[in-house]
Amino acid sequence: MPSLRHSQRVVGWFDMQRTVVAETNAPAAHAQAHRYTSPVVVFLVLTIVTAIEVALAVVPGIPHESVVPVLLALSFVKASLVALYYMHLRYEKPIYGLIFVAPAAFAVFLIAVLLT
């Protein structure tokens, strides 16, 4: 059985990036390292973007029609952050992202057809 070592350096919850290293002595494998964003940073970004969304929607004086595309774009950004960082799609094989996104792309196309 190959001896496996899975080490991780975590400076703290608020560190911007962490390093995770997986190593094995198996000939076919090689050590790889990825830096990935702290979940707390992702949470703070999601919270701030949500606050901006709510402000755009409820603050009087902003034309509603002009805000709708911005709100949809911000919502897409938030959903992408959750998928990429919390669901780890950023670190996965693209096939998982394709499996997940393909139905959404089909649905968006369908909605666009129905509304026009």
């Binding site: 059985m1 198996a26 494998a29 780890h88």
Partner: peptide, 18 residues
């Protein structure tokens, strides 16, 4: 493929000695 959330054997593939 390696993923930070995965177990090491799944992350990096199995060696010849597995």
């Amino acid at each position: 493929k390696y993923s930070p959330m995965e177990q090491a054997p799944v992350l990096v593939g199995m060696g010849e000695s597995a």
